[in-house]
Design a protein around this nucleic acid. Sequence first.
DNA 1: TGTACATCAGTGAACGCGCGTTCACTGATGTAC
DNA 2: TGTACATCAGTGAACGCGCGTTCACTGATGTAC
Lengths: 204, 204
Amino acid sequence: MGKKAAYHHGNLRAALLEAALTLLEREGLPGLTLRKVAALAGVSHAAPAHHFPNLQALSTALAAIAFDRFTAAMAKARARAKPEIAAQVRAAGRGYLAFARANPALFRLMFSEGDLDWENAELKQAAAAAFQQLQAISAPFADHLGLKTEADRRELERLIWSSAHGFAHLAIDGKMADANGPPDVARFLLEIGGIKRSRNPRGA
Amino acid sequence: MGKKAAYHHGNLRAALLEAALTLLEREGLPGLTLRKVAALAGVSHAAPAHHFPNLQALSTALAAIAFDRFTAAMAKARARAKPEIAAQVRAAGRGYLAFARANPALFRLMFSEGDLDWENAELKQAAAAAFQQLQAISAPFADHLGLKTEADRRELERLIWSSAHGFAHLAIDGKMADANGPPDVARFLLEIGGIKRSRNPRGA
DNA sequence: TGTACATCAGTGAACGCGCGTTCACTGATGTAC
DNA sequence: TGTACATCAGTGAACGCGCGTTCACTGATGTAC
């Protein structure tokens, strides 16, 4: 903090992104404006223009960082879990939820409401990496379940993603107050399901 | 259209809600303002104040109507489907998705981003009715799967809801372009799952 | 059926606010020589 | 090491815009008698 009075900030771009993240979680998406971000970063409201031509550019850069952290949150949860596939699926779901709970407004910005530039290379790559992690979890689980067709394997992927995503959304919107973790898809598929098949191999 | 020049509108409240819905889907949540709603309904911008004290009140009334239509969309899809429980679960999921696809901005208003008054009686009741329909589908499916404990039954409920909700969100955000329907939870649980149990009744 | 009057639902002008954007400027930094 | 100068990153005033809100008003409707 010693050299604070410097005319040149030094690393304003990073400071603006940091301020944007704080502001976003404090006031929600409608509260994210260039003027407020500048004020929070301690510079005049015209300063951000040198780093981001408009709010969309700032949001896009923020979302790219967010996807990186999101991917890291899932990876971290997986690293702590046992290597068995069911445990890995569960851990990824918990990581997904943990990120959303820690950064609800950011999570919404990334997925739903944000006015983002999806042509941006950094954002595209960061989002693709997150999606690839999902695939990396789903594929061995599909093997484990004995899914052969590409359609079934893709549908399992969608089921895992959708349930994690839906639970995270409902949780941050306060609709899942009584549940502390996402539904355990792996357990349902491994231990509870299969009724029809085990009772009646080619049922209605 | 004949008596259009009347000074008194006659049914401005309903017209404002109709205009709000159109505007919401046309411009998204940030585009929903009292002034634009008034303009679209063909009245001066001060007129809505006689019917809605502020934008939140209008959004809340809109969301209450939306939850009614949402419940109806699921009921309609169920009515068209076979009475078997798996078909009913599938149909509800399709109804959920159909509503979200037909009214993406409204769907987001209802669940995520809308500044709604959740103390409002109409909204509470409409949302509760939607949730009850979900429970009405989940309960017989839990019976069918032989789930005994309350925890398992609640978790199945969350799994069904989360996967439908998550898929709907991802679909309206353009992340599921290659899939035309939600993942079929019922099929996975009935036909694909149960590996561990059928192979090894008390597995790890 | 006619009149007086209260009430209701709209108008339109005015206000202050925060926003993004522009622009001339100024101070700090880095480089050429 | 010293000086001139280009470039870069910030300032602060100004702009026009759309927003919610207020307020005196006005026209239509409904009711009492």
